[in-house]
Design a protein around this nucleic acid. Sequence first.
DNA 1: TGCTATGTAGGAATCATTCCTGTCTAGCAA
DNA 2: TTGCTAGACAGGAATGATTCCTACATAGCA
Lengths: 150, 150
Amino acid sequence: MKLDPQDIEARFRRHAVRVTRQRAAIYAALVETTSHPSADDLYRLVKRQQPMMSRNTVYYTLGVLRNAGLIREVNVGHDMARYDGNVSLHHHLICLGCGQILDVLDEDLNRLQLSNGQARGFDVLRHRVEFHGYCVSCQQAERNVSPRRK
Amino acid sequence: MKLDPQDIEARFRRHAVRVTRQRAAIYAALVETTSHPSADDLYRLVKRQQPMMSRNTVYYTLGVLRNAGLIREVNVGHDMARYDGNVSLHHHLICLGCGQILDVLDEDLNRLQLSNGQARGFDVLRHRVEFHGYCVSCQQAERNVSPRRK
DNA sequence: TGCTATGTAGGAATCATTCCTGTCTAGCAA
DNA sequence: TTGCTAGACAGGAATGATTCCTACATAGCA
């Protein structure tokens, strides 16, 4: 989704996030893609427009935006963290081959909850569902290399 | 669950995993706890019986056991990896305060699947559901320190 | 019992992330 | 508009979980 600079500024102010050139660029990059980039992906992306950008600033900004609820962190395995500019309730479909992450929108999944017995006194705030498998290209690649899935 | 040495040996052989003292100790420790320990937790635990144990061997062994399907890796955020000796299909309830992980056994959760449209050609092999919240002690601790949840 | 592929220990290396520090600037107040 | 100050930025150093490397040890077969 494409965002105007003034939309970004308004969102930042609504969430009490100070507006800076760096933050706007990082947030814009994240909202405009559906690819769930890593901190380093964003660093390389944003550095093209702002060569002085520090990797540190990317991490710091991602922390600020996450705490403000403007972005979400997505974790696949214990690989590097990946980020999602879409904070509406949704889940993920993850390719074990190439690591791509697709969004899954499903009201039934959003409504899942534990019974009281299962919750064991927890105050459950949220849940997350991940589907793991192989995307079309990785299935094809696998077939070309070896007929057996490891 | 308590396991005899011969049970462990039989499982290892069934999964074509070479039997060594170190592996047996690491696997036994993992199956006997429900606390989903990290590699380093296991290292410290097992080192008490086998002082020569190397942290490296723990990592290597966990890799071998995971590839053999004898254990599972559980990931919470991008914290260090944690391991689960229970490979039967189940899900997790995670405390955002203290990091403890409880098992959730629920046939309905086990049966979740994506519609063809949602799956977008993926060959979906498995899914995982995580519930995040605060356990009873962390809720109490929070109340004592500050009335506001962050 | 001996051989050999595989496992183990320990140290070095990696690399995502965090910490530190000096400079800069957004956003408020005068 | 200008000045002030808390908070943000850049860049380098530090951290810490994990992996790599290598020489020695051993499981398990012949």
